[in-house]
Nucleic acid binder design. Sequence first.
DNA 1: TCTTTTCTCCATCAAATGTTGGAAGATTAT
DNA 2: ATAATCTTCCAACATTTGATGGAGAAAAGA
Lengths: 220, 220
Amino acid sequence: MFERKLLVASPLAKARRNPNSMKAKILSSASKSFGSYGFHGATTRMIAKEAGVDISTLYYHWGEKQDLYEAVVTDLDEKIRHKLEQIEKIVKDQPLSTRFEIAIDRLCDFFFDRPEIPNLIQFCYFSKIRPDSNLRFKVPVYINNIAIAIAIGTSKSRDEISTKAKTRVLAAFNSIFNFVSAENMFRPMLGISRPEYRVIVKDTLKFILIPAFTSMPDLK
Amino acid sequence: MFERKLLVASPLAKARRNPNSMKAKILSSASKSFGSYGFHGATTRMIAKEAGVDISTLYYHWGEKQDLYEAVVTDLDEKIRHKLEQIEKIVKDQPLSTRFEIAIDRLCDFFFDRPEIPNLIQFCYFSKIRPDSNLRFKVPVYINNIAIAIAIGTSKSRDEISTKAKTRVLAAFNSIFNFVSAENMFRPMLGISRPEYRVIVKDTLKFILIPAFTSMPDLK
DNA sequence: TCTTTTCTCCATCAAATGTTGGAAGATTAT
DNA sequence: ATAATCTTCCAACATTTGATGGAGAAAAGA
């Protein structure tokens, strides 16, 4: 009960309840800025400017830069979790190859429309934050548990799943993030249009992942 | 001849000729700092401190922060190219699955020992640099051409290779970067040691990639 | 309507960060 | 040995960036 109260009273919960509020608008701008430039690359002025407000309004709503960043990460975390749970329901009781096909399709659509999410995750994965910042390091770790559940199904207890299998799911999941985040770099290399890119990425992921995973005894 | 002269006279070439010089030492520190924190996250003071010199010594040798950053990227570019060319020679005339096996092995060893290289590449791929910076955007693009050559062999002209095939090579290549760069995030998830991680990553990459690629008519 | 609270902006501050000048030390050439 | 050059550091400067106080507008409550 106590925890529930804390959750509801949190600034983030408040922003989520009313997506048109200034708080939510700033959060959204922050998401994009942090996603594009990273924690240090994004400035509070830049975020405020994109939200169309004065910088002190930002501080009024969110406090320190670090607090805002944490809110962004927590928020993205919830969004992914929600999406994954949604997919989990859809693919339940499907055969493995179908599970993968659907999951890849849905996730690609979801992330291509919200590229800041994979960007932010990537930053969490391998960009350090300066030691002098007293940021409570928060990482979207559990999403991988759900990813594993999708890939493997809920039939087995998670402890039973081998490290090998987990690693393969990580690889699969991260390939999606990669293609979305690095679109601006990859697309010119391939010389194709945006829509073409989306199609070919899905195709590639399915092509690489499905045969690999369906041949895994662990997942059967 | 003129170009050759320019190349030799460049600051970077000078640093490479003498790896014990202060110039080279600063370049190496810069590599690590930019690799860990990104362009904006790494400060000139931080780089100088790691190199054990005063900050003005850094500016004396390399000029603006942006110039130093460009030198770092160019340098890493050359290193990768060299490694890829080396591997290309080894795997030449081997069957496709062997080519992949060797390439994955060598590349993993190489990158795991120099994690700043994949880090920097990842930053190039999806971290923006603030617009006010007048950084000439420089990207390690061509490395993908060589990667494609390794994967596919030099038998075909590169123009003949389908976009699909190129995309698949991109996916493969990037999976390696990912596992190396995100080790600090992935390893705790999997609950394994450093050496175990290295082994399982190689295994995973081979498991996923080799079957996918050897079944590709394009690459035969 | 009047009061209270919430919100937004302007002006400003302090610290961090990029950058430079010049003095002094080290190295090389003559 | 002496001059010339290269290298390093200390001190400082200008700008950027994180952060705040306070005045007034807007909204909510009485």
